[in-house]
Simulated scan of single mutants.
Amino acid sequence: MKRAVSAFALFCALNTPAAIAAPAYWRTLTPAQQEALAPMSQQWDGLPETQQRSLLNVAKHYPELSAKEKQRFLSRLGAWSRLSPKQREAARNKYRAFSKVPEEKRKQVRQMVKEEQARKAE
């Protein structure tokens, strides 16, 4: 459940429109915030304020995560930070479409993805 909440919070933070100029600079963040948001460090100063706020809200929970959860969080945030704007929009659209699929079908798809990832890891 905690992972699902973390993943959802991360998606929400990253799914904000890019319309407002960002006033908060990377150098003004606390060391703890910088640790949690490290994958976004190169882009931070150019992010819209709304997205910065969302990410800072997610970063509040970072210290509570286990080492494994922190690694997963940073990995996902890093992957997101490397996407082009077009790829991010495609990911948002997929997420919106997936959200409309009935819960039972979503569970089946998640299970299939887990099994595929396990096969690739072997």
Score class of each variant (00 low, 15 high):
M1E: 09
R72G: 04
K107F: 02
E89G: 03
L55F: 04
P23C: 05
W26D: 01
A9M: 12
Q111N: 03
E35L: 12
L83A: 06
A67G: 03
A67V: 04
Y95N: 12
Q34V: 01
R72H: 07
K105N: 05
A121W: 06
R27G: 02
W80R: 11
P39V: 05
E49L: 14
A4K: 13
L77E: 07
S99T: 01
S84L: 13
R27W: 02
Y25I: 04
P31Y: 03
W26E: 04
W44Y: 09
Q51H: 05
V101S: 00
N57Y: 11
P31K: 04
E49H: 13
E115Y: 06
E89Y: 05
E122L: 11
Q34P: 01
W80L: 08
L29S: 07
A36D: 00
R76Q: 14
L83K: 10
N15F: 02
A18N: 13
A67M: 08
P31M: 02
W44S: 04
W44H: 05
N15V: 00
R3D: 09
F11W: 12
E104P: 05
K86G: 07
K120V: 06
N15D: 08
R3T: 03
A36V: 02
P63F: 08
Q33S: 13
N93F: 05
L14A: 08
L29F: 08
L37F: 07
A118E: 14
F98H: 04
S6P: 00
L56Y: 06
S66M: 09
A79V: 07
K68N: 09
Q34S: 07
A22T: 06
Q42R: 15
K60D: 04
R72F: 07
N57M: 13
R110C: 06
T30S: 15
Q71R: 13
A59P: 02
N57R: 15
R110V: 03
A18M: 12
W26Q: 03
A90F: 05
P48H: 07
L10D: 01
P63W: 06
W80F: 14
T16Y: 11
P23F: 10
Q87Y: 04
R53M: 14
R88P: 00
L37C: 08
K100H: 05
Q117F: 11
